[in-house]
Design a protein around this nucleic acid. Structure first.
Lengths: 164, 164
DNA sequence: ACATAAAATATAACACGTTATATAACAAGG
DNA sequence: CCTTGTTATATAACGTGTTATATTTTATGT
């Protein structure tokens, strides 16, 4: 990146910067998932993981647990339901509530993810963050440099034994 | 946030986390800008700042300088042109190139921003980042906590004298 | 019991990033 | 010169976040 203005602007562009790096990390993670034929978008994992961890949740509880707005959850959950990983049942007591839980396919996907996908992604992310230090800005600089030098998907498939 | 799953998942959800915090920082910055009647979206500042810093740039050069894709720049520049802050002139030599530069209104907006808006936003962001230390994850935890406790717009308008 | 408020979810409209592809101008070899 | 490839930009389609508002169900006060 010749003369990266967002980086040069430092604290003034922190929001833009965080978003940009987050998108890069997600895109790299997506490549790992695609290579392993995981039929999901990277951003859909947290929703499934939340239900897997906490049990069936309502739309509102999910929004709270994920730190996003309720309409975002409504849409994401709709897609995952259509894809067959979630099922909905109305609250028996309160008919407004739609409680979301994993289907069999959803449970299977989570089981596989927990066993082989997540450890791989997490190791790659740990690897790229390894050695970062200093101020937040300094660590973001380092993270971007490290991602550019060797993206997560290369770390996932090449660095099987060099965790410290 | 009761049981924040994205935070709990740590390195596995780093991409989602960075995006989420970046969106929060931008939303808070937007509130500062709205209060000061700055007629822009927060995300449009880097593009104007790049041209202000580096002089007239082509679409491709902007994409490079901002670290985003070319279609993203084409659209953002189109909006800023329609809003009257940018003007386009075709390359005299190479007719494919569209060189973007600031209009009078654009120059004026940048002058005002440099004088009063940017220092305010930057001070607020520095304030919220002040005292962060440790690993990247630890600093992100701290940043989210600090933003929740006192958002940027409150820091901008209340903390005029407590920079250390 | 019934009007009214509150809560849970859905829908609409928009912001802004991406990838894939189309178009237009330039460059180059036969 | 004229096909053919490359480069610069534009357009289209989509992903996923937001805010604002509508809809449906539950709770409440008189």
């Amino acid at each position: 990146m010749a003369h990266d203005v967002v980086r040069a602007l430092g604290y003034l562009c922190l929001g833009t910067r965080l978003r940009r790096i987050g998108e890069q990390v997600q895109a790299d993670s997506q490549r790992i998932m695609d290579s392993l034929d995981v039929p999901l978008q990277a951003g859909q994992y947290p929703l499934l993981a939340a239900i897997s961890r906490l049990g069936p949740l309502s739309v509102g509880e999910l929004a709270e647990a994920l730190g996003v707005t309720q309409p975002g959850v409504t849409r994401a959950a709709g897609l995952l339901t259509k894809a067959g990983y979630l099922k909905v049942r109305k609250g028996k007591d309160d008919q407004r509530i739609r409680r979301l839980s994993l289907t069999g396919a959803g449970e299977a996907l989570i089981a596989r993810s927990r066993a082989e996908i997540w450890p791989m992604i997490e190791a790659a992310v740990r690897d790229v963050c390894d050695g970062l230090e200093g101020s937040l800005i300094a660590q973001l600089d380092g993270l971007e440099d490290a991602l550019k030098e060797k993206p997560l998907h290369r770390r996932a498939f090449e660095n099987e034994g060099n965790r410290r």
